[in-house]
Amino acid sequence: METAEFETVPLRRPVIELEGAGKTYHTGSVSYEALRGVDLAIEEGEYVAIMGPSGSGKSTLMNVLGCLDVLTTGSYRIAGQNVAQLGDDELAAIRNRRIGFVFQQFNLLPSLTALRNVELPLVYAGMHKDERRERALRALDRVGLGERTAHRPGELSGGQQQRVAVARALVGDPTLLLADEPTGNLDSTATGDVLSLFGELHQAGRTIVLITHESEVAAHADRVVHVRDGRIQADERTVAA
């Protein structure tokens, strides 16, 4: 009897690994547990929405995932690296090279053109002006604003400003895109445009983690993690997935 041969499928290490993650804030004699024993793994190429009401801990979770805040208890690994073992310079390098951030507030500098706003992360990284201009132009073209490079934020709609913010997040070619309520300041049309863009980025292989309190927005992801009172209440695949 012949032995069947099976193709070996390589195991992928999750981009994000949280184990027993806890975060406690102290104000004088008062303590507040924002995260309580969170276990979460997100693999490369996943599109995950983290959903919960105000005060649920989802924004704290976003800050931890983006290496903007540190855990009180438990562990966090990003691409296999234990964040607790990294120094300030190493954490800054992760934020600059591996993670792209998109926030509810567009955080664009009003005096700069769209092109210059997108270039900024590369300026801080010390990249030569010719290369950063080329990469910024390519990022703006990718989000559909190749003809608006010379426009300042005040000359763009809310949806266009958020697209500039997405281009800025992508210009460093990060492996992980973190979006915190990215449609919170947008009307329904602009919301649809931005979510369509996230869908395109996901189809191209980008790992996306979207923080939201809106079920309609979360439904665009392949997986929804529900957070309440600092704990994960449910972790489910969406119907579309």
Rank of each mutant, 00 (worst) to 15 (best):
E5Q: 10
F6G: 02
E7P: 00
E7T: 04
E7V: 05
T8Q: 07
V9T: 07
V9M: 06
P10K: 01
P10N: 00
P10F: 06
L11S: 08
L11H: 08
R12K: 10
R12E: 11
R12T: 08
R13Q: 09
P14W: 00
V15T: 03
I16K: 00
I16S: 00
E17Y: 04
E17W: 01
E19Y: 13
E19D: 10
G20N: 06
G20P: 01
A21G: 04
G22I: 06
K23I: 07
K23A: 07
T24L: 10
T24N: 08
Y25K: 09
H26N: 10
H26G: 08
H26A: 13
T27Y: 08
S29R: 13
S29W: 05
V30W: 10
V30T: 14
V30G: 04
Y32A: 14
Y32Q: 13
Y32K: 12
Y32G: 09
E33P: 08
A34Y: 08
A34T: 08
A34Q: 08
L35S: 05
R36F: 04
R36K: 15
G37P: 05
G37A: 07
D39W: 10
L40H: 06
A41F: 06
A41S: 12
A41C: 07
A41V: 05
I42H: 04
E43V: 04
E43Q: 14
E43L: 07
E44C: 03
G45H: 01
G45I: 04
G45A: 03
G45D: 02
E46S: 11
Y47Q: 03
Y47D: 01
A49S: 14
I50H: 10
I50G: 11
I50S: 10
M51L: 15
G52Q: 12
G52V: 10
P53A: 15
P53M: 11
P53Y: 08
S54I: 08
S54G: 09
S54A: 12
G55I: 07
G55H: 10
G55N: 10
G55Q: 09
G57F: 05
G57M: 06
G57D: 09
K58Q: 05
S59M: 06
S59P: 00
T60E: 04
L61N: 03
M62A: 11
N63Y: 07
L65S: 00
G66E: 03
G66M: 03
G66H: 07
C67W: 01
C67Y: 02
L68N: 03
D69N: 11
D69W: 09
D69K: 10
D69M: 06
V70L: 14
V70M: 11
V70S: 14
L71S: 06
T73F: 12
G74M: 11
G74I: 12
G74Q: 09
Y76D: 00
Y76K: 03
Y76S: 03
Y76G: 02
Y76E: 01
Y76F: 12
R77C: 09
R77F: 02
I78V: 15
A79W: 02
A79K: 13
A79T: 12
G80M: 08
Q81D: 15
N82V: 15
N82Y: 14
N82H: 14
V83I: 15
V83E: 02
Q85Y: 06
Q85A: 13
L86C: 08
D88M: 11
E90I: 05
E90P: 03
E90Y: 01
E90F: 05
E90S: 10
L91C: 07
A92Q: 07
A93K: 09
R95G: 09
N96P: 01
R97G: 06
R98H: 11
R98G: 11
G100Q: 00
G100K: 01
F101Y: 07
V102F: 01
